[in-house]
Amino acid sequence: MNDSLSAPNICLENISFSFSGQVIFSSLDFEIEAGQWTCILGPSGCGKTTLLRLISGSLREGFSGRISFDGKERPSGTTALMAQKDLLLPWLTVTENILLGDRLRGSVSSIRREKAVDLISKAGLDGYAGAYPFSLSGGMRQRVALLRTLMEERPVILMDEPFSALDALTRMKLQDLAFNMVKGATVVLVTHDPFEALRLGHRIHILAGHPVRPVDARVPDSAPPRLPGEPGIDRLHAALLKQLNQEA
């Protein structure tokens, strides 16, 4: 991760936000622990993506409250986003897509290029550096999107259902890859999949209700990433589903 910025904790205080006359958040308080994976579950339309947009700073207007990073205002260049859509630019090669942030800021250098090549090889994409997105499978495209996110070297990584469009096996592999590669960052993962949250989360919160409130869910005692067969996971999975059902 970025040396100058260590992974911060994120504090949302007294957040209120309405959209088209509907109250989404009202005096919401929410804390995200530094350097950990926080998974957020909840029914569609409950404001999970809005929460990410508040943290990333994409949503600048229409809300009240305070969002702080280690107690301070959000420093510029703090967050990176990985979404459900890979958002690869079809006219750029894999390497160029990974270096998109540098390209946009006019800071592409040979050192950064080398770093991109290194990441490509770590992600098992050797031989695809010069390929265009349309020649890649869905799983490979999402891997490239992960590398583009990592290339930003931001201390906070926001993930909006990045694995949900993949088949089960590809999803597991990419979850492991993502977990191992983003080590050290503060990660907020929005997901529909309780099992994914149980695999990856240090903490799991369920967003539900009107207006939305975060509810803590139980997490296995072992350290993530957890394997499907681990003792207790199935039981927690059932409990989590039940809890989700009740909250909804």
Binding site: R53, S56, S58, T79, L81, A83, L87, L100, L104, R105
Partner: peptide, 8 residues
Amino acid sequence: ELAGIMNA
């Protein structure tokens, strides 16, 4: 939005 987060 992605470009905005990348400070473009």
